[in-house]
Design a protein around this nucleic acid. Sequence first.
DNA 1: CAGTATCCGCTTTGATACTG
DNA 2: CAGTATCAAAGCGGATACTG
Lengths: 122, 122
Amino acid sequence: MAEPLDPDMFTGCPPVAAPIRIGDKWTAKIIRCLETGPRRFTELQSVLRGITPKVLTESLRAMERDGFLTRTPYAEIPPRVEYELTGLGRTLLEPMNAGCEWSRKHLADLIHARDAWQAPAP
Amino acid sequence: MAEPLDPDMFTGCPPVAAPIRIGDKWTAKIIRCLETGPRRFTELQSVLRGITPKVLTESLRAMERDGFLTRTPYAEIPPRVEYELTGLGRTLLEPMNAGCEWSRKHLADLIHARDAWQAPAP
DNA sequence: CAGTATCCGCTTTGATACTG
DNA sequence: CAGTATCAAAGCGGATACTG
């Protein structure tokens, strides 16, 4: 069993201007949530603040379709469903980490460039 | 001076299903075009098949604003404008290469998973 | 708890035509 | 040559409400 996810695990990393994206808007964060073990729908929803159930379902289905995670429902009342990374899903951690590294090293430069930017006078 | 770009340099890599994206739809390809030296607007447009001048301009402006490339117009007739990667722009090659590596190693698995996919019966 | 069902708006991308 | 101007379409992501 994995410990509860840190409720603030993403507060530091909104997509300020990061030019690197994995999958759709939520894919990378979902992968981070599943990195330490399987999670249930509601666990994900509470950490991914603001995501609606519709969008979370869509993201999870797309990732399942692409072979990045598995969905296993348990026949209990109340229902329980667990999402777990596959080996293929785990391979995405490598390019994700490359993207994070880039941000750590260079995102400040991008922000600075954007601040200093003056659109060319028409 | 750089040699002409291979007109087919991107024919092998449409975004089949690659889950890794740098910037907007064209950013990564523009960076590849500029990797070997500065290029003019028309050179880019001819290699990025199907891109309209409006969209190419938008992408280039966004990249200039973010400090990824420089735009230098020459006061000639006919006009000439050259786009060149900055050092910051070049740093994106690292995560880009990580993404390409991922595709080489794992994209086939994704495609296969997608082929085998059966949406759960409602 | 783990979703569906509708409806909606913004952003992204493109088609087409025109210009300094 | 290197763009700009307009218009239109598509794609995502979201709000809200309801259900097995």
